[in-house]
């Protein structure tokens, strides 16, 4: 498939960690595409390479061979600064661990990407409060991460990823730390964003119920996409919305 609205494309991507005899190949030639506006789940057993794929997608790590195209741009040809600008302007990332700044209020954490975008204080406050409101945390804006529950920290992390209105949201187990009720809320929020704002979402999850919120599941086994188990779900997303 080679569509005009392809947002990302992995072309024989491999990733090796370490060197010599300690070398370990986490990705062994991964091919897949995601179109603009898709909501895709990445599934697979632990250690199958899902986070590795997400890190490469988020330009947090570099691939070993193959190519990663973002809107047709070969990302491995970009330099450090260009990749940083790609992260800044197009990508929102939610980590498996939350990676919030300690001793920094929820609002300041959410504001941080805006600081690097050079926004003024007022504008930052407005946008970060709006993002916190989206995840239902406006009352907790001035609390430090250490004063928040795991689920609340996860939601701050999501607010931080959304505050810049990215082209794509990459979420590595966004509900991994939440109870099922909170998980439902987060998933509803994500599919709403997907539908209403045409936000492309890639999400790693272990829970089949959560994967049902997405339109498509890419299944990983042992560093490769398992085509047999990758499938469309019944959900209708932005793609099919009018």
């Amino acid at each position: 498939m080679n569509r005009a609205d392809t947002l990302i494309r992995f072309d024989g991507v491999t990733k090796s960690y370490g060197s010599g005899s300690a070398q370990f190949q986490a990705l062994k030639g991964v091919d897949f595409e995601v179109a603009e506006g898709e909501f895709v789940s990445l599934m697979g057993p632990s250690g199958s390479g899902k986070s590795t794929v997400m890190n490469i997608l988020g330009c947090l790590d570099v691939l070993t061979s193959g190519e990663y195209f973002f809107r047709g741009v070969p990302v491995s040809q970009l330099d450090r600064n260009q990749r940083a600008l790609l992260r800044r302007n197009h990508i929102g990332f939610v980590f498996q661990g939350f990676n919030l700044l300690a001793r920094t209020s929820a609002m300041e954490n959410v504001e941080l990407p805006l600081v690097y975008r050079g926004l003024g204080r007022r504008e930052r406050n407005r946008l970060s409060m709006a993002a916190l409101a989206k995840v239902g945390l406006e009352k907790w804006a001035h609390h430090h991460p250490s004063e928040l529950s795991g689920g609340q920290q996860q939601r701050v992390a999501i607010a931080r990823a959304l505050v810049t209105t990215p082209s794509i949201l990459l979420a590595d187990e966004p509900t991994g730390n939440l109870d099922s009720e909170r998980s439902e809320e987060i998933m509803q929020l994500m599919s709403q964003l997907n539908r209403e704002q045409n936000l492309t979402i890639l999400m790693v999850t272990h829970e089949p119920e959560m994967a049902e919120y997405s339109q498509r599941i890419i299944h990983f086994v042992d560093g490769l996409v398992d085509p047999a188990r990758s499938r469309q779900t019944g959900s209708a997303g932005a793609q099919y919305a009018d």
Partner: peptide
């Protein structure tokens, strides 16, 4: 360690190296 992680966070959300 703490500062390295913090730098990682800042880079991850789009800060440039020189910033």
């Amino acid at each position: 360690t703490e500062r390295t992680r913090e730098i990682g966070i800042r880079l991850a959300i789009g800060a440039l190296e020189h910033e």
